[in-house]
Amino acid sequence: MFPKPIQSASPGAQIAYKTLLPISLILWLLPLIAVAVFSIKPDTDFTQGNYWGAPGSFEFVNNYGQVFFNSDMPRYMLNSVLITVPTMFGAVALSAMAGFALGIYKFKSNLLIFFMFVAGNFVPFQILMVPVRDLTLDMGLYNTKTGLVLFHIAFQTGFCTLFMRNFIRQLPFPLIEAARVEGVAEWRIFWYVVLPLMKPALAALAVLIFTFIWNDYFWAVVLTQGPESQPVTAGITSFNAQFRAAYHLMSAGSIVAALPPVLMFFLMQKHFIAGLTLGAVK
C-alpha cells in the first residue's frame, strides 16, 4: 500500500493525521457549509450585514417552506424528474443493445462504429446547438420535455455504449458460445444470458445518467424556456431573479435543487463510483 499505512508511523504522526482529516474536510467543503448556514438564516441577518456570524434566528422551516410553497421550485423539480427518468431508461436500453452488438459480434465496421460513438461523446455541445435546436423546432418539440429527453437519450448513448461495450467484453465469451451451440436464438442470448450479467453496469450507468442529466444546464437553456418545461438547473436562475439578493432563499433553493443527485450518490455510491472509474484500473 502506498503511502505507508499511518498505523506504522509514530503516535505523534497518527494524532496529527487524525486531526488534519476533519480540518481539511471542513476547508474543502467550506463554500458548501456556508450555503447551508445561509439557508437557515433570517432575512434580517443579511440586511444587517451579519453574513458570516451565527444565525440571528433559526429559520429552517420558514426558508424551505418559502421555496416549496411560494415559488416555482416544485414545478421545476417535477420537470427535472420527468426529463431525467425517461432519459435514464432510454439511454440505458439503447446502449445495452448497442454495447451487446459491438461487444459480442465480430464484423468489419465494428471498431469504426464503436469509435463513432466514442468520438461523438467527446464533441463540444456547441457544434450541435444550432442544428439540434432547429430540428427540435421543426418537430414541434421546442420547449417540451420530450424534445429535451430525445436529445439527451441520443447524446448519452455515446458514453453509455462505450461503457456497455467494454463491460460486455469482459464477460466470459464461452458462455455465449455454449448457448449458441444449444441453438438459442441470438436475441434470447441477449435477454437471458447477457442482460442478467450486466446488472452492475446497468445500475452504474443509471445513476451516472441520472446525475448528468439532472445537472444539465446548457441544453435546458437552449431547448426550453419557462416553468412549463424547464428543469431545476435552469429554474434556479429565474429563482435567482425572483429573489434577487435574498441569499437565504437562494441558498435554500440551491440545496433543494442539488439534493436528488446527492441522495442518489450516497444511496448508490458503490455503483456510482464503479461507473465513474471504469477503465481507471486495468
Binding site: 439503447l94 446502449s95 443493445m97 448497442a98 451487446f100 452488438a101 459491438l102 459480442i104 459480434y105 464484423f107 465494428n110 462504429i113 463513432m116 460513438f117 461523438g120 464533441v123 457544434i127 450541435l128 446547438m129 444550432v130 442544428p131 439540434v132 430540428l135 430525445l150 436529445f151 437519450i153 441520443a154 447524446f155 448513448t157 455515446g158 455504449t161 436464438a185 441470438e186 436475441w187 441477449f190
Partner: peptide, 28 residues
C-alpha cells in the same frame, strides 16, 4: 442470424446518434 443480429441491435442507437449528433456536426 449471426450477421444480421448486431445490426438490428445497433439500429436504434445508430439512428438516434446519427440524427442528433453526427449529422448536426456536418450541418453546423
Amino acid at each position: 442470424e449471426i450477421a444480421i443480429t448486431p445490426w438490428l441491435f445497433l439500429a436504434p442507437a445508430i439512428l438516434f446518434f446519427a440524427v442528433y449528433v453526427i449529422i448536426p456536426i456536418f450541418q453546423s
